[in-house]
Write a protein that binds this DNA or RNA. Structure first.
Lengths: 325, 325
DNA sequence: CTGAAAGCGCTTACAG
DNA sequence: CTGAAAGCGCTTACAG
């Protein structure tokens, strides 16, 4: 490894002077500039960021903690983050929690030790006290919130639920809501939107139409099989994510239910699959990439400006009409 | 930030001694151990990894360069990597090249400056000379190879193509191969497997049956529309990835072609979608997560053992039968 | 315009 | 069993 010292010796100047030209903080005589640049090139020198980090307390890395990178929702978000911060010279450390709070705690500690400049946190929801740990360091929450203590970027889930339901209401007032676990914030908000749309249309909200199922393809599949077994007629379904919707569709197709002729369906998320399915799924698109992009911008801003007031960014979902409505 | 020095002062010992207990490298008297541990707890001290890295030349981070994290193939691989290296205390830096070689070069330099302990490289294929740059540092290539200079983990694509074709041969000897760009190594290998299976079955290889299309859903869709326009009868299709297969299926469904009654289809990759589609897609599964896992193990091994001979790991794909055959 | 020196937070021979 | 000291590769007042 060649160091500043090597460059300095070859150029017959002091390390300070080399450092000055590297950082462009002071003016040096053209001749010495030439000598130094020649030495740098000759030696193939590049600065050691670890040493710089130790001195300056800037590591140019941010940590991203998320539940599961193989879930395309999070993959798109981190892509948005990485794409924007890398333009400012920042690297991102990927931390996959698998929704395990122990692992989450471990990452939090590791990142602290690594002296990251900022953290983008999409938590399991089990660890709430990151405030203590991350003290003064910039943190932005994505798709999550704990009060207004931290900056956050989220999307308006109430609006999403409302848009989906309103679309379905054009064809039927009997709408089944295939809900994920109600304990998850984003889900309960979508339910509020669902309810709001119903009420606005003068349709009574009926708790029996809300079916809580696993947040998966199989969850949706089983829920519909269950309803069909009761010989209950299905006219419209709002699924709280696309995988549930796809599972539900599968159950209907297997049972000869025609989509969209007999049943209309709206999903949530707009994963890649949605557009590729047959019939293509109408769904509520979440601006995943943009969520990441805004989070990246926010964290960069906080790093540059040493904090400031926490900001809450709320993005809007949009209805994407395809073949299931 | 509390430092070793703070702990030392509070415990009335030297920093060396504190360092020794932290690293467990020397035995200390039980009393001083107690004092030190008390001070650590009291101060909430945690070691600064940047300083440690500067001293020891071990940063406990590895870099992962890949084309696109929002592609589930790569997402699964990096998940495999992260899951395994984090168990040994390593963090991973995510570098998304977007298949841009300039960006790739930039990442290579950044990672070098960050003094990473190892690199997992899934390159764009345009940068070939990482040998020079990464000199002595451990590198493992995934799903790529440049000679045998580096360690690598790949999957047997010839076998994959062979397995797919062989399955299709049970129903028809007229098999269309929807190929991605032939310039990509993995694709041309699948084609060899396709050809081998044909020859083995005594079926003449016919170049007209190989249709090069975009490596996307639309690519598959357009290819089939094209064939149908020629009034050519289709009996079996081997698509070089699942998205192409899904696009192809869509084109067939729209044109009233029955799957699998009239046409059998086999895809490649086994992306999440494949199992969720209706009909569910028969495909060649690539052990994506395992590829990442093995890559993680390899890099860890190289870091621990300071190099050694490069190893070539070749994994086997498997045929997953579902409803399109 | 340039350099000597201190220091960032650690580790690790070396000495006692 | 414990400590003083040098050093990892940089940056940055301070002095000239």
């Amino acid at each position: 490894m060649t160091t500043l010292k090597d460059v300095a010796e070859m150029a017959h100047v002091s390390v300070s002077t080399v450092s000055y030209v590297l950082n462009g903080k002071k003016t040096v005589r053209p001749e010495t500039l030439l000598k130094i640049n020649a030495a740098i090139k000759e030696l193939g020198y590049y600065p050691n960021q670890i040493a710089i980090g130790l001195k300056t307390k800037r590591t140019y890395t941010i940590g991203v903690i998320l539940p599961d990178i193989s879930n395309s929702f999070y993959a798109d978000i981190i892509k948005g983050i990485e794409d924007t911060v890398h333009l400012s010279g920042y690297s991102v450390i990927l931390c996959n929690t698998e929704n395990d709070e122990n692992r989450e705690m471990k990452y939090l500690n590791t990142l602290l030790g690594k002296d990251i400049d900022g953290l983008v946190f999409i938590g399991t929801g089990k660890t709430k006290d990151i405030s203590g740990k991350f003290g003064s360091r910039p943190v932005v929450l994505v798709d999550r919130k704990f009060g207004n203590e931290f900056s956050s970027v989220s999307v308006n889930n109430i609006l999403g639920g409302y848009l989906a339901t309103k679309r379905l209401l054009r064809d039927s007032s009997d709408i089944i809501f295939l809900s994920g676990p109600a304990s998850v914030n984003t889900i309960s908000e979508r339910k509020i939107g669902y309810r709001n749309a119903l009420v606005e249309a003068g349709v009574a909200f009926n708790e029996d139409n809300v079916i809580e199922c696993d947040f998966t393809y199989d969850g949706g599949y089983n829920a519909i099989i269950g309803i069909l077994a009761e010989h209950r007629r299905i006219r419209a379904v709002f699924a709280s994510n696309d995988e549930i919707a796809l599972g539900a569709m599968r159950a209907m197709i297997e049972n000869g239910v025609k989509i969209p002729d007999e049943v209309k369906i709206v999903g949530y998320d707009d994963i890649r699959l949605a557009a590729m399915y047959t019939p293509a799924l109408t769904t509520i698109r979440q601006p995943k990439y943009k969520m990441g992009k805004r989070a990246g911008e926010l964290i960069l801003d906080m790093i540059m400006n040493k904090g400031g007031e926490p900001k809450q960014v709320v993005l809007e979902p949009v209805l994407v009409e395809r073949e299931t409505t």
